[in-house]
Simulated assay, not measured.
Amino acid sequence: MIPVNVPLLNGNEKKYLEECIDSGWISSEGPFVSRFENEFSKYVGKDYGIAVSNGSAALDVAIKALNFEKGSEVICPTFTIISPVQSLISQGLVPVLVDSNEDTWNMDVHQIEAKITSKTKAILVVHIYGLPVDMNPILQLAKKYNLKIIEDAAEMHGQTYNGKKCGAFGDVSIFSFYPNKHITTGEGGMILTSDANIAERCKKLRNLCFEKERRFVHKEIGWNYRMTNMQAALGVAQLEQIDTIIQRKRAIGKKYNEHFSNKIDLHLPLAQTEYAENIYWVYGLIAKTEEQSVRVQKKLGELKIGTRPFFWCMHEQPVFNNLGFFNSNKFPVAEKLARNGFYIPSGLGITNTQIDEVAENLIKIIANG
């Protein structure tokens, strides 16, 4: 079996985990947590890092820390994982969806301004699959309309926009460290900000809103979203290798591109834009039709080659439709991505021989119709 993702843990991960075990510091109170927060925030270019249990937890905390009134609107993409919109709706906010850019698969920034109303409080940016959202137009809109930017850079460890790290643009930004991310802590997430007040609020919210005056007397609801010292130890070790990780991910993408160029009738991921080079969090492909996508994935599965379909659009999620959201919305580009898109094995643990095997089999499947 060639899985969609195999993580790579070939640095100081074992050494740092042994330090946790030997010292007895395995909980969220251990020293690796603050070390990971400090080193990761410095790497991205933010003043404060708040480590949490996963990327969805990071979104919950980050959004609540902004203290928007219930009913406030937040503009975000329809083509994304469910977590951002779930966090907004669960906190009484109203997601206002935007269609995708056909080339980059990110939100179409040219559609945003028409969605802004007097109730709009923020733009929630989600960088998708390997290329960042075009941030300059969003920064201009945020300034023009006095909006906050929530930056979901869960998939963008080390990626840059015009030379500046993704995650450095938001008033509050989040990352995920799930095993398929460039940096993994097994599960885990991080909130970044340069606002001291937001940082303190995030720290409180992730820790059940304990009060300094009397620990077990609570004035508001928070979460137990803490990251453990063992998770943070993995993160520190992984961050030490981030430059090598980025080089490897781009090499995987380049190798697939070389295999597929002019040999398959699928839409390949865009290698670069004027503001970024693809970091290939995953290597995605767009089939001509939904039927072709399903058939190709089935054939690859029979050969024990893993695939994963693209995200499903938020406006077509039954859970949200049943709550009365998005029932009349149509977003044709995002709908095509969701139906026709899939990705193939491209995790850091994949070998060049496995890449060759995946590519050669995919080419044969396409050639055979």
Rank of each mutant, 00 (worst) to 15 (best):
K204N: 12
R201N: 14
S194A: 03
F177E: 08
G222V: 14
E220W: 05
E200V: 01
P179D: 12
M190N: 03
C209W: 05
K203P: 01
I198A: 03
R214T: 12
M227T: 10
A199N: 12
K203M: 13
M190C: 13
F216P: 00
A232K: 09
R206C: 07
T193M: 11
N229K: 07
K219A: 02
Y178V: 00
T193P: 12
R206L: 08
I221C: 06
E211K: 10
K203V: 00
C209N: 15
G186F: 04
L205V: 11
L192I: 03
A199F: 09
G188P: 07
K219W: 00
F216Q: 02
K203C: 11
T228N: 06
A199V: 06
T185N: 03
M230Y: 07
M190R: 02
N197Y: 05
K181I: 00
T185D: 03
A196I: 13
D195K: 02
F177R: 11
G222D: 14
A199L: 12
I183Y: 00
K212L: 12
V217D: 08
G189A: 05
G222M: 11
I221Q: 14
G222F: 10
Y225G: 01
F216L: 12
I183E: 02
N207A: 11
R201E: 15
F210L: 10
R206N: 06
C209I: 03
I183V: 15
A196C: 02
T185V: 02
N207M: 01
P179S: 08
E220A: 13
Y178L: 05
I198E: 01
T228Y: 09
G189M: 04
Q231R: 10
G186Y: 04
C202W: 07
M230A: 10
I221P: 01
R206F: 02
L192D: 04
R206W: 01
I183P: 03
M190T: 06
T185I: 03
L208D: 15
L208M: 10
Y225Q: 02
H182L: 13
T228A: 09
K203G: 13
R215K: 15
W223M: 10
R215N: 08
I191T: 06
C202G: 04
E213H: 00
A196D: 13
P179F: 11
I198W: 06
H218T: 14
G222S: 12
N229S: 10
F177T: 15
